[in-house]
Write a protein that binds this DNA or RNA. Structure first.
Lengths: 219, 219
DNA sequence: GTGTATATCTCGGGG
DNA sequence: CCCCGAGGTATACAC
């Protein structure tokens, strides 16, 4: 991600036409090529932008961004006040479903729901391709990776499979079993999971909440 | 504007709950207090954000942002890779050309584009469920309600239909015809409109501007 | 303030 | 690819 603070004027011609008079602004260029021009206010929406894919050409006076759809964004740069770049890597992504987030939290508190004597090692256990929802140890001390979903579909099984493949390279964990836990598991996902030796568990959200309530009442 | 590149995890609790696992991201704090968390891709929308007004409190482990509406954004900062701040000043603002308001304005000046002898009664003619874009009288003095859109889709036809139903209750206007005017009209919208006796007109923005220019040159 | 309509809406799912 | 629907929609404007 490249961040440039510059005094600039901007002209956009595409779905409409827009013009920004000369002022100091932030120019943000992301790794996927998208460009956004931010003022120092006005919520998160930029004044002007171009979504990926597009082509950025620089010259002595500024930048020209063109998209395959025929949009053009011309940024005339009068003065550069700062210019930095950072490699952020691929983001593991947002977990946005309130129910799913809560499911993971509830399950983390009561991993014994998955098996008697199980212990939680940690939530969001990191691997180099992203975090596993839960890493546990079963009653024999064997490692178990758990993927939690609200609706269990094939891509969730694929995701867990990739994590298992990574975790299995760690000698302190190997062998790592997998558990696919969801409120509802699609038949195709169940077939795929079980063909890979991944256990499927159907979660009862209300029952988990009930368990939570019981624990809370203990205190 | 403060720009921080940091390895962080994020939890939002408000209108929903959301969680971001640990990764390197851009934290943007604008002068009005709003906070946005960007990954290195995915258009201009941040992964997570908090609009102004809000309160930002920092501690040893990160930031806590709270809004008056009871939302909280917790940013746990594991490592700071960069931290800069710039005073951008107040932006002179964006000038747009070609949005629906402009189309409506152009058409209001030249309602004869819709039919010879037509007269504008008023723009934004009020009904009890919202304003009609244009109310006109045709060459026979009959009332015509015009809905202007940049892109004519089904919901625009529904909107005009609701207005027509209201206007038709007014004895001084009844019967009221409808015209759906847009730069581009989707086939489904056209079919629905015509099935309801609503005429469709495709607008040529450049031509309307040309007409405007001609008028201007007359002065 | 509440309500309505717009947006370079964005973003994701399904056909 | 388009169509359709939801969004932590945000934003402007009228009542």
């Amino acid at each position: 991600m490249r961040l440039v603070i510059a005094r600039c004027t901007v002209d956009y011609d595409g779905r409409l036409q827009a013009h920004l008079p000369e002022a100091v602004r932030l120019l943000m260029v992301k790794a996927d090529g998208c460009v956004a021009i931010h003022a120092d206010g006005g919520a998160y929406k930029p004044l002007n932008w171009m979504n990926a894919p597009n082509r950025l050409v620089t010259d002595d006076d500024g930048w020209t961004v063109t998209s395959p759809k025929g949009e053009t964004l011309r940024i005339t740069i009068h003065e550069v006040l700062d210019d930095t770049a950072h490699d952020l890597g691929v983001d593991p992504g947002l977990r946005k479903d309130g129910v799913e987030a809560h499911l993971q939290e509830l399950l983390a508190r009561d991993v014994e729901v998955l098996g008697g004597g199980w212990k939680l090692v940690r939530r969001e256990y990191p691997t180099d391709i992203g975090p596993v929802d839960l890493l546990c140890r079963d009653d024999d001390g064997a490692a178990v990776a758990v993927e939690v979903k609200r609706r269990g579909e094939i891509d969730g099984v694929e995701q867990l499979t990739r994590y298992l493949e990574r975790l299995d390279r760690d000698g302190t964990l190997r062998p790592v079993r997998g558990v696919f836990a969801a409120q509802e598991i699609k038949p195709q996902a169940r077939v795929l999971a079980e063909s890979r030796g991944i256990a499927c568990v159907t979660l009862d959200y209300d029952a988990l909440r009930g368990i939570e309530s019981d624990h809370l009442t203990l205190f």
